[in-house]
Nucleic acid binder design. Sequence first.
DNA 1: CGGACCATTGAAGCCTATCAAGACTTGTGG
DNA 2: CCACAAGTCTTGATAGGCTTCAATGGTCCG
Lengths: 234, 234
Amino acid sequence: MNSQPAAHDVFLDVFDNAPQRNLAAGEVLINAGAPADNVFNILSGMLMVSRTGGDGRRQVLSFLVRDNFVGLTSTDAYFFTVEAVMATRVACRSRRALTDRLASDPESERTFLDMMFRVLEDAFDLVYSLGQRTSIERLAVFILYMRHWKRLSGDIGDDLDPVLNEVQLPMNRVDIADFLGLKKETVSRSFRQLEDRGLVHRADHHHVQILDLMTLRQLAGISDFASPRHIKSV
Amino acid sequence: MNSQPAAHDVFLDVFDNAPQRNLAAGEVLINAGAPADNVFNILSGMLMVSRTGGDGRRQVLSFLVRDNFVGLTSTDAYFFTVEAVMATRVACRSRRALTDRLASDPESERTFLDMMFRVLEDAFDLVYSLGQRTSIERLAVFILYMRHWKRLSGDIGDDLDPVLNEVQLPMNRVDIADFLGLKKETVSRSFRQLEDRGLVHRADHHHVQILDLMTLRQLAGISDFASPRHIKSV
DNA sequence: CGGACCATTGAAGCCTATCAAGACTTGTGG
DNA sequence: CCACAAGTCTTGATAGGCTTCAATGGTCCG
């Protein structure tokens, strides 16, 4: 099974020859509330999309990697914050440039719509996790989620390729916790449980090795993520 | 402030003269896993979209009312179940009929895309609730959510119109619990807390009266829902 | 009027959060 | 290269919130 033809070509080429920007780890790309004038495409690195309540509680909505897309909203202001998890390079275009492109090219608009559906399905996956799964199950899903991305970004066809068992987690524990609706201490303890059960091994804070994929998937309650997804947006 | 021009006209007219179907309370419209051949538009009543895990845990993804839209996915099979919460009437069209319509009419496609963004933002609202809010806060948000819909469906301009304080909850406690990521007993107890604090009054199982809107909103952490939303889809 | 279903309430237990301390990693400067 | 300092992660003890289990009460419908 090989990866689907890159939807890349169909509308992401608005970003060809676009101005680029380099972000350092922790640097903010989009502030919630700012006018939604620009859209971005990730060339390398990782971005984190989050929403923070008036009292400071923060929910991470998604982590985005290469070829993913950020910035569109239905309103004129961003309702989320986007910051770099690690050193990241993005391409920048005005919102108008993208909407004009979509308006003038029906095929690209359809592709874009397809992408939106996959993003929505991802959001519902997260809803299911937060509403129904326990802390250790959420972490298992998260690790498999990261593994899945590695597979896509590396264009690795074989689902069981051993290199996929070396998973990188560039974000810190608080970021993971805020994504999974937990506290950092609970994330640590859940990692420990996964280790004690022999499912994973923590090489260091940012590298996890999957030791028992089958059981991990069983715990997560998923065989694998639905379909290859190269592109994502918020 | 009056309601925005009904997006209705722009693409929902695919459902004009479409065959209709009446659903009794509890009747299933879409089974998860079935081929995604049809799309539906709600004419009256209320539908509930949910996803159930292999072990039986169920997460309600959304409740849908009049003029909302159900059935599109990025894959060829529905990944959710849709059933009627109360007696409901829907209009039915083939998936093709809708996609053809969108393909042939750029304006309708753009409107559709806008709707998708609002749906996605709603999904992120739910993510925030499930990840960060306590049980009583989630219930407060939910009640305000239902109030908001009443306002939209009744085309009530004044945000403080007293009739809006009589909120109907057609679904049962388990449905609410599965939507909010709680158990039915916790929903009951949270209702009680809201009553004890003098924020709401339970007339019966399906009717709630808001007594202190300002404090309820403060508890929910929202002034109001972002923008008028007539249409929604899954 | 009786039965079934749904909702509420109570008591006890479990999971996650909170508070607090210690270990490790990373980066800096001597 | 080592020592130190800052930040992050982990671990432990305790507390709190939600769930589970169980029983009562209420409502709708036959």
